[in-house]
């Protein structure tokens, strides 16, 4: 039990990941599926940011008033890139959904059955 408590943050991000996964699989609305995807993505980002944390650390910005230790700056840079990737995927997904709606008049998976 104790590693679970020690790494509670990691466990919480895993739970978020699984909530996103569940929405992605189970929800019958396609827009909600995209939201599930976004939750999964942000959960992974939260994991990466957390992994770069350091006990009692400062933001990695040098200058007057800044003190060591610093948080690791690399995970932050990775997550910044990741956020942009996430918004790009979402934009393409939503544009595709507009087309699906134009062609079939619905975004519900049960009404799209046969074509899904």
């Amino acid at each position: 039990m104790s590693p679970l408590l020690e790494n509670l943050d990691y466990v919480a991000t895993t739970i978020l990941f699984c909530i996103g996964l569940w929405t992605l699989i189970a929800d019958s609305n396609l827009i909600k599926k995209v939201m599930g995807l976004n939750i999964m993505e942000t959960a992974v980002f939260a994991f990466i940011v957390t992994s770069g944390m350091i006990e009692g650390g400062d933001a990695p910005i040098t200058g007057p008033g800044a003190e060591l230790p610093f948080m690791s700056p690399i995970p932050h840079a990775l997550v910044l890139t990741g956020i942009v990737v996430a918004v790009s995927t979402t934009a393409v997904a939503l544009a595709l959904l507009l087309r699906v709606h134009r062609e079939h008049g619905t975004l519900d998976i049960d009404e799209l059955r046969g074509r899904w």
């Binding site: 992605l24 995807l37 595709l96 699906v100």
Partner: peptide
Amino acid sequence: GIAAFRYLLMGAAASIVILL
């Protein structure tokens, strides 16, 4: 449209797992 969207959902999920 639907084919591309399915591809996107699965492909994006795969990307997320790879990023993890």
